[in-house]
Design a protein around this nucleic acid. Structure first.
Lengths: 193, 193
DNA sequence: TGCAAAGCGGAGAGAGTCTCCGTATAGTTC
DNA sequence: GAACTATACGGAGACTCTCTCCGCTTTGCA
């Protein structure tokens, strides 16, 4: 086992903690690495040794994310409500988590199909969550829907919400359209075909 | 009326022409303004006098866009086919136009609610097109759908498609889900509620 | 206490966007 | 067609951001 020097661990922890606050208050794109280094009182070299890219740093900040995603799935599935309402609960929770830090939704969603991304582990969590949703609501779900599709649809809505200064409620109404699409049964709209 | 010097007009036209090719081959983000200036054989100062920002330059490149958007609407509405098919024709055309230049979908979609954006005029075209679609397919359309909602949903799908290296067909299947959501009638999924 | 090995930090390379301002030229006036 | 002025040109460089290199410092073990 490789020993980790105490100063290294201390610096790493302080960087993550400080960076989390800065990202939350200013958004991903508006934060420079120099700014993080200064705030954490380390040199740029130190920052970059711990986190080779800005995305790696962001990935470390999202450490606890997986747990929250899984909790949201369980919460939605365990609701005593119709399938549509449970689906909406999940979609809304997930979109909210994606837009928690400005600029994050686009990066995470873009990484969905890229195993080499620093966010690959987060994406697996995300895809797994949607897999659970599809299983849990199987009887009501549109036939043939895949986790990747739901992930991308909600990701797309989240990206737009993130970059558009939308009034509250707008996101929800867009998600309702997506939800209805995801629940559409064959022949449900036969009259329109 | 303010006279326009011949050299100025010549340069402006050449810049737009050259830039269109470069953006098409490399994508918005991968092109630097210096590169455009060099290719158009003008100095950086000249480029920036004609187009104060990179987005202004891009806006000029999209000059003929409005016509194509409107043509796509007319084409979709005039199809002799069920509403769902006509809606899909439009959504697919529009998503394709948005992803024509890599990086453009995100910028145009983000500008939808921002009247001060250089793309404001393009956004009006886009919103107007969706207004026509809603009117044209009114009887089949989900009650209460607004142009801004469709614009953002398709924009979201386009952004994801643009940043994700998706296999052909994936975009279409996501748009089908959106289309079904947009056509969902009250009570259509009653069994799930 | 001594000494590798690991870690630190900041100057600066490289890439962008965009500005400033001295120079050149188009178009008008006589 | 020469002189003049408003307009346009061009490129050096200011500023910002990500990320690297390498001489110096600190840690933890013997």
């Amino acid at each position: 086992m490789v020993p980790v020097r105490a100063d290294a661990r201390r610096n790493r922890d302080r960087i993550v903690e400080v960076a989390r606050d800065i990202f939350r208050s200013k958004g991903y794109d508006a934060v420079s690495m120099d700014e993080v280094a200064k705030a954490a009182q380390v040199g740029a070299g130190t920052l970059y040794r711990h986190f080779p890219t800005k995305e790696d740093l962001y990935d470390a900040i999202l450490e606890a994310w997986a747990d929250r995603v899984n909790a949201a799935v369980e919460r939605a599935l365990s609701l005593d409500a119709p399938a549509r309402e449970r689906l909406m609960a999940w979609l809304a929770d997930f979109a909210a988590m994606l837009t928690e830090h400005r600029g994050a939704a686009a990066r995470i969603t873009a990484a969905l199909g890229d195993p080499s991304s620093p966010f690959a582990a987060k994406c697996q969590t995300y895809l797994g969550a949607n897999e659970r949703i599809i299983e849990g609501l199987a009887s009501a779900m549109r036939p043939g829907v895949e986790p990747l599709q739901i992930s991308r649809l909600v990701g797309g809505v989240a990206v737009v919400a993130d970059t558009s200064e939308m009034p509250p409620g707008s996101v929800a109404s867009m998600l309702e359209i997506v939800a209805d699409g995801l629940l559409a049964q064959e022949g449900a709209n036969l009259a329109n075909r």
